[in-house]
Design a protein around this nucleic acid. Structure first.
Lengths: 232, 232
DNA sequence: ACCTGAACACCGTTCAAGT
DNA sequence: ACCTGAACACCGTTCAAGT
């Protein structure tokens, strides 16, 4: 086949692309977690010497930041900006979308909270959020604070949810139980921590999508109350 | 001086203690960030061969987990359990305490969210939180969810706050500006993201302790509303 | 311009050997 | 029981050399 074969390199011109490197990085991340996404591993997967990666990216963190930006590009910013639906619904929709897209790549969540998100996609989402909160009646100061609160909640939730799977090899197939295990699902001594044991049981029964939405709605309630301090 | 000198080892018996290893780990974490807290670095600091660490801990993650547990032990659980003060004030007090104690060791925050917190101190704090939420009138299911929400908020906030400093060498001395920088303080193109640029300005002006408390109070408002769905 | 081989300064962990 | 030296299988990154 006349595909872009790695063999028989034509003496000049690039045999790779930034996107191919990001593809390889993401697949390694999914298969083996954060530790598997090494420069040497990436190079090996695309069939190139380790240092060839540095032709495309200045260093490893640049590769990972670019990957984060690409994943954030999948978020539907128009849904966030659509004034025909109530602002709370828009937040809930995008929060759920962000969760499902990112939990498909648990290793990437660790990367997101590990560094600042300052690419155009990250800034775009933040900007839409601020517009939306203005729609909700918040003054600019409250909107700034509320947007930061929402970002904190969403990424904090995902970080805690992912923490349990972060450790060995490929991620286990039951992300729903994570929230429960985080507060000690497996082996909580019920004598010493009776309420914790019962709570772990509760959170194990309710799937974590429900928990995620419940928390988000409490946050939105709090923002709502701040938005209308007089009219009620 | 007849201090516990590392030289002239007495042929038998331990020259170290778990606590000495944790002290060394914490100081390395504070001085050089997460990457500086290596097994070889720890061993070097306590004056021992790298593999001697494995006499005291099974592996590196065990060292880090023990350190996390020790830091959580500094939290005043009695303040959380003290029924003579209103439940919201108790949460705010401990949330502020947790923030000041952990932001003194930014590298440790990364460790906390990186893995499950399941030591006795972590479980103890969770248990006190559940008791407190029962005091607030929440049924066990709502209390389980609210406690998870509060944990998410506190550690999510700290994780985002610390993300900016995580990168090189010793942490910069201005943790107050971090929140602002996180959403692009440094170089937000105001033409493309006008609200973000203005919000960054807002968050830069208000110190992040205020932002932290503002968010916490929105969360508490939301929980409060869930606690009393009928009586108002 | 892009890729390679070789090297540098690191990792965490294991193992056989010494006391 | 505790520590050491040496080794193994890795890292990210740099540099001189080749096309």
């Amino acid at each position: 086949m006349t595909s872009t074969g790695r063999r028989g390199r034509p003496g000049a011109g690039r045999t790779l692309s930034e996107d191919e490197i990001l593809d390889a990085t993401l697949s390694l991340l999914d298969e083996g977690g954060v530790t598997a996404a090494s420069v040497r591993g990436i190079a090996g997967r695309v069939g190139v010497a380790p240092n060839a990666v540095y032709t495309y990216f200045p260093d490893k963190t640049a590769v990972l930041s670019a990957l984060v930006e690409r994943l954030l590009g999948e978020v539907d910013q128009e849904a966030l900006a659509d004034r025909s639906t109530p602002w709370r619904e828009r937040v809930e929709f995008v929060a759920l979308e962000l969760r499902s897209r990112l939990m498909a790549h648990p290793g990437a969540v660790t990367l997101m909270i590990g560094g600042p998100m300052e690419g155009p996609n990250a800034l775009g989402i933040g900007e839409r959020l601020l517009e939306l909160l203005a729609d909700a009646g918040l003054d600019p100061t409250a909107a700034a604070r509320a947007s930061y609160l929402l970002i904190t909640y969403v990424f904090g939730s995902l970080a805690l949810e992912v923490a349990e799977l972060a450790e060995p090899g490929p991620p286990p197939p039951e992300p729903e139980r994570v929230a429960a295990r985080l507060i000690g699902y497996s082996a909580v001594p019920a004598e010493a921590f009776p309420r914790t044991a019962a709570a772990a049981d509760t959170l194990a029964r309710y799937i974590s999508t429900e928990q995620y939405l419940w928390g988000l709605r409490r946050v939105l309630d709090g923002i709502d109350r701040a938005a209308a301090p007089v009219s009620r």
